[in-house]
Amino acid sequence: MTLVAVLDYGSGNLHSVTRALAVTGAEVVLTADPAAAVAADGLVVPGVGAFAACMAGLEAVDGPRIIRERLASGRRVLGICVGHQVMFGLGSEHGVETAGVGVLPGVVEGLAARRLPHMGWNTVDVPAGSALFAGVEDERFYFVHSYAARALPEAEGVAVTWAEHEGDRFVAAVEAGALASTQFHPEKSGDAGARLLRTWVAALR
C-alpha cells in the first residue's frame, strides 16, 4: 500500500488533510519523525496561518532539510496553502521578511485586493498538459488566504496554475518535478479536491 506521511509541525489543518488523504486509499501517517517523513512514498506539507510561524514550526522538525532532500532525490512532496507558500524563497508579511524553503523562486506577499482574506470558491487557469489537474481542469477550488506568490519565472519542466481575486493574479498551484503545491485547500474543495488528491497519490505508485 502507498504510504503518505503528513508532516506534523504544529499546523492547524493537519487532521483534515490526513482524513482527506485516507479516503484516497493510501496508508496515511501523521508524523514529526524525520526518518519517516523521508522514507514515505509521498510527503504532504499542510499549513495555515502566518508564513513566519509555519517556517519556525518546520525548522523545529527539520522540515526544510527533509523537503529539499526528498525533492533532490525525486521523491514527491505536496504543499498545501501556507505549505505551498513556504516552498518559495521569501515571505513578506506585515513588514517582516522570512526566508522560505527556497525550492521555488519568488516572494509571497500580500494580495492587492479590497476584500481580504480571499475566501471561498474560485476557478483556476490550468496549463495544458497538467498532470495534477487531470479531469478537474474546469472545476472550482476553495481558497482562504491574504498572501500569495504573484510571479514565478518561467522554467523548463515547471507548470504554473493561476487564479485571480479582484483582478489580482496569483499562483494557485505549481508542478515542478517531484514538487506539487496548491494555494487552495484540496481537502476542502469537495469532489474536485478529492480527485486531485487521488491523482497525486496515484502518481506515487
Rank of each mutant, 00 (worst) to 15 (best):
A159D: 13
F88Y: 14
V48A: 12
E166C: 10
P153N: 10
A163W: 03
T123A: 15
I67Y: 05
L132C: 09
L30K: 09
A50W: 04
G177H: 11
M119C: 08
F143E: 11
T182C: 15
A194T: 05
R198W: 00
D191V: 12
E97M: 11
A192F: 04
V171C: 06
R140A: 14
R195C: 05
A176V: 02
S146M: 13
V17L: 05
V144E: 00
T2G: 02
V174N: 02
G100M: 07
V201H: 03
L132H: 05
P34M: 11
L21V: 07
A159W: 09
R70P: 07
A176E: 02
R68Y: 08
A112S: 15
H15G: 00
G100V: 04
A151Q: 13
G190S: 08
G100L: 04
T161N: 07
D62T: 06
L104C: 07
V17F: 01
L116P: 07
A155V: 06
V101I: 15
A180I: 00
G102I: 09
A56E: 15
R150P: 09
L14W: 07
A173M: 11
E139A: 15
S73R: 15
V4M: 01
V126I: 13
R198T: 01
A131S: 13
P105Q: 12
L152P: 00
Y9V: 04
A163R: 03
L179R: 01
L111H: 07
P105Y: 04
G106K: 07
L30I: 11
G10Q: 00
E97A: 15
V61I: 14
A26C: 15
V17S: 02
Y142S: 09
P117S: 12
T199P: 01
L43Y: 02
T199A: 04
G79Y: 01
W162G: 07
A173I: 09
I80Y: 04
A176Q: 03
T182R: 05
P34W: 06
A172T: 04
V144A: 10
R68W: 11
L90K: 14
W200A: 05
G120T: 12
V124S: 03
L179C: 01
V158F: 09
S130G: 11
V48M: 12
A39I: 03
G102H: 11
Q85D: 10
T98C: 10
D33V: 13
R70I: 06
